[in-house]
């Protein structure tokens, strides 16, 4: 079954998760030839996690590990191959597209590229009103009023209403993207590399804005990024993905203080030292990430793992709880259960 860690345990263990993803798989067929059977790129290969209300769940991993695909799959921008996603205890993967339209209001997304995610031929006001028009919210005047409110909420002003997207900087556009997502008063916002196209000082501004908005609108974020620093700054809990699998889930402090999975350890050891006097052991991984077309048997990380054992090559590790909020999928922690 799943070789992924589940993050079912949360700070408030009693609360129901707002969004529960179980064993999500997203496989893309690749045609190899007329007579050969299709191969499958296993972009997401059985990922399960919980998103609590008001929480930010960070998702880190290197390029191509399937984190963006996972985000898109959750919002059904790509139809999932397998798995279930429960939003308020309703499996949104089983609803029809028409029925899913209702959930779209509550599940929104902010995209990676601030330059191409806004229609260049439309004014910012129309772009923002579009979302509400689609769902038939309010009259035209009400929508205009709301858009102006939203522009102010995200740190822009009403004078920006008539501008075109190309008149804005990357950071401002990302604010517009955020405003568009907010215009439908969502509950969950999937942020797909939202700040990675911005430079560092602007990243901080946008991140602070997002933190503020989360409180104001009582949102939950699924924050996808490859930048460990950014994820550490904004997330309550962090999931680490490798080759389509979630290998470790922990609270932000736990993950950075005491990473358990060898991959996470390597990732965190690669962070630049903030204090030059502290001696730090760098873990250097050798080799390349295996192709998701043909993932390794057993543990997906065994080809590069410094602690690989025989069992790793044969048996898929089950996610294990290390401590209350810390889970990892690794055979090294077999005994510690």
């Amino acid at each position: 079954m799943s070789q992924a860690a589940t993050g079912e345990v949360s700070p408030q263990a009693t609360a129901e998760p707002l969004l529960r993803a179980t064993d999500i798989r997203q496989h893309f067929p690749v045609r190899r030839g007329f007579f050969k059977p299709n191969a499958y790129v296993k972009a997401v290969n059985g990922v399960s996690f919980d998103l609590m209300e008001g929480e930010t769940f960070g998702l880190v991993g290197e390029s191509g590990c399937g984190k963006s695909t996972l985000g898109r799959t959750l919002l059904r921008l790509i139809e999932p191959t397998d798995g279930a996603c429960y939003y308020r205890n309703k499996n949104i993967f089983e609803t029809s597209q028409a029925e899913f339209g209702k959930y779209r209001r509550e599940l929104q997304m902010v995209f990676q590229d601030p330059y191409s995610s806004l229609n260049p031929k439309m004014r910012v006001g129309s772009i923002l009103e579009e979302a509400m028009a689609i769902h038939g919210i309010g009259s035209r005047r009400e929508r205009t009023d709301r858009v102006i409110d939203l522009l102010e909420t995200v740190g822009l002003s009403s004078e920006h209403y008539f501008r075109f997207p190309h008149e804005f900087s990357g950071g401002q556009r990302q604010r517009i993207n955020l405003a568009r997502a907010l215009s439908l008063t969502p509950k969950v916002v999937v942020c797909d590399e939202t700040v990675s196209a911005l430079d560092v000082s602007i990243q901080a501004q946008v991140l602070n804005l997002m933190k503020r908005i989360r409180k104001e609108f009582n949102l939950s974020y699924l924050f996808i990024s490859h930048d460990l620093g950014v994820v550490k700054y904004i997330s309550d809990r962090i999931g680490v993905m490798y080759l389509g699998n979630l290998v470790e889930v922990a609270t932000a402090e736990e993950l950075f203080e005491a990473p358990k999975h060898p991959y996470t350890q390597a990732l965190i050891s690669a962070l630049p030292k903030t204090n030059p006097r502290v001696e730090k052991q760098r873990i250097k991984l050798t080799g390349e990430v295996p192709s998701p077309l043909d993932p390794p048997s057993g543990c997906c990380f065994h080809t590069r793992c410094p602690h690989a054992m025989d069992i790793c090559r044969k048996v898929v590790p089950e996610p294990r709880t290390i401590s209350g909020t810390h889970k990892t999928a690794c055979h090294l922690y077999e005994e510690s259960v």
Partner: peptide, 10 residues
């Protein structure tokens, strides 16, 4: 991406 964004908006 802005077409995908429209899908996401429903």
């Amino acid at each position: 991406p802005y077409i995908e964004a429209l899908h996401a908006l429903g």
